[in-house]
């Protein structure tokens, strides 16, 4: 059936909820407020990625890099591209891959100094002041969600380190300036669902920036939350279920 202009318009109009109370972002912000009103150990942050809506624009990757001031070689949320079929009959899939914030995280027990741990709300964090940089956790993550900060700067080797590379980074709610040379340089680093933003009542940067509204975030412990309803869909799946890691990132396929 040919796609008529009317059909195309209908599609956009149906999704033109932007800014209205039906906009998923508005709804998720309400969900977030409700969750933050609860004690931390009763929250269960989860992310849902609707792969049917992801167009592979990588805005989330960029927003994450901007939010967390990520240096070269460090990435928290790349978008994997999968090509299916043989040319010319091919299709592409896009799979954004944040940290899965596993309920049973393989990266946590291996840390020799217990520098990485699960918060009561399920987010896996790294204590930059304790991490010795052995990188064992990087090998243990089945999703390659941890990267190593080897101390690079985009503008090193140019006449001056540009100001944007000296801006403080607010991961973990503290002000970190990498240009002074200390941690997080030499540490393993990872996505924290933007824990510092959550604590301030904001959705993760990837979620607010997603142009296709393909990223959902909220408290899976709240049956009213949008994510809870999406997780209940029959077409939900998780990466590498067989590992027993119990990820809290769900994919709608």
């Amino acid at each position: 059936m040919p796609v008529t202009t009317e059909k195309a318009l209908e599609f956009f109009v149906r999704d033109a909820t932007m800014g209205t109370p039906d906009d998923p972002i508005i709804r998720m912000q309400e969900d977030l407020k409700r969750a933050l009103a609860k004690p931390i150990d009763q929250r269960r942050w989860a992310m849902v990625l609707d792969l049917r809506k992801c167009v592979g624009c990588s805005s989330c990757t960029v927003a994450c890099i901007a939010e967390n001031k990520l240096p070269p070689g460090v990435v928290y949320r790349p978008v994997l591209e999968e090509e299916i079929g043989t040319f010319p009959n091919v299709a592409r899939h896009f799979v954004p891959r944040p940290c899965m914030q596993c309920d049973n995280p393989p990266c946590v027990p291996v840390c020799p100094v217990a520098a990485t741990y699960k918060r009561p709300d399920g987010i896996i964090e790294i204590d930059y002041d304790v991490c010795i940089g052995c990188r064992y956790c990087i090998t243990a993550c089945p999703y390659s969600a941890r990267t190593f900060d080897s101390g690079r700067f985009y503008t090193s080797g140019t006449p001056q380190l540009e100001a944007y590379e000296k801006l403080p980074n607010f991961e973990y709610g503290v002000s970190l300036d990498r240009s002074q040379g200390g941690s997080p340089i030499g540490n393993a680093r990872k996505c924290t669902f933007c824990a510092h933003r959550l604590d301030a009542g904001m959705l993760p940067a990837c979620t607010t920036t997603c142009i296709g509204r393909a990223t959902y975030f909220g408290d899976a412990n709240d049956p009213q939350a949008l994510v809870s309803q999406l997780i209940a869909s029959p077409n939900v799946t998780r990466l590498k279920e067989e590992m027993g890691t119990e990820p809290k990132v769900y994919y709608l396929v």
């Binding site: 027990p109 291996v110 100094v113 217990a114 052995c134 190593f148």
Partner: peptide
């Protein structure tokens, strides 16, 4: 020399994670 923070090597003894095989190895 391989450690990202060699100056923290002593932490391996001071705050060993008993769940880590690397901790036992230390």
């Amino acid at each position: 020399f391989d450690l990202g923070h060699p100056e923290r090597a002593l932490e391996l003894i001071l705050r060993t994670n008993i769940h880590s095989v690397m901790g036992w190895m230390i």
